[in-house]
Design a binder for these strands. Structure first.
Lengths: 140, 140
DNA sequence: GGATCTCTTGATACCTAGTCTCATGGTTCC
DNA sequence: GGAACCATGAGACTAGGTATCAAGAGATCC
């Protein structure tokens, strides 16, 4: 995953600097979704001396490359999820924050139907699913 | 629509005060989605003397009652949409901001399939569709 | 209709997430 | 090894939203 990110940055034509490598490693160690503040705290604890702006800049780069996606949690806060750079949707555990990707499983039919009924030409969509992951389901 | 909002506030057991009535009327005059700042500007132009906090407080109340929903536009900004208090999804015009509601048209099957594949128990979902409305499509 | 109690208000301070600026420092490439 | 340029951290700034609080407006009861 770290390799994947560094490759993507390389392909994007930006430099593989120290801060970027360190942050990529921190993202890899994270499980589930995280906020920019989480990452900054991680970096702070390890005395990495990485600035706020650098964190946001890397997240922006990664999200342009599709390796990270920003989602809107049900409580209105934003979080980032590491993911594959193909079109897909996220399933987020409301309990532990774990995420998995779901590829297109029928959403095309839904958008086509919505387009037909409304007369809109649909160009983008966003689908986010929230629930309980298998671990949290069996835990209680 | 204004009536609907005032009724809902009444049912929610809160007072139908002057500022709330005025804001409800302003929301009614809006077309498509709007931000809290838009509403505040509207009120300012009419010298209504309504505070920022009051605007956010009303939007929160209305959203608890399901008469307004907060969505995340593709550019990452937030906007509010007046809508019916039933479960549904939004179709947003990327050009003019017009919105329409789409009721469930097959999304259940998608969530069931995602649940089956992932082992998650899906409790909530959010689907937002973006595109061009009929007017904007014919305009260019 | 007035007194009273409570809810709501606007002002203001504050907060979080994110962006912009800029001088300094690290990379790349020749 | 040096020049050019990209990336960095610090800190100011912005937007969107929340918390606090004294004062004002609604509802209620008589």
């Amino acid at each position: 995953m770290t390799e994947e990110m560094l490759d993507a940055l390389d392909r994007a034509g930006v430099r593989l600097t120290g801060p970027r490598r360190k942050l990529a490693a921190l993202i890899e160690r994270r499980e589930g979704h995280f906020t920019a503040a989480d990452l900054l705290k991680d970096a702070g604890r390890r005395r990495m001396g990485i600035g706020r702006a650098t964190v946001f800049r890397l997240l922006e780069l990664l999200s342009e490359q599709g390796l990270v996606e920003r989602i809107d949690l049900p409580d209105g806060t934003h979080a980032y999820i590491p993911c594959e750079p193909t079109h897909h949707h996220h399933l987020v555990c409301l309990n532990c924050g774990a995420t998995t990707d779901v590829d297109d499983c029928g959403i095309e039919a839904v958008t086509r139907e919505a387009a037909r009924r409304s007369g809109f030409k649909i160009e983008q969509h966003r689908l986010e699913l929230f629930g309980r992951c298998p671990d949290c389901r069996s835990a209680n």
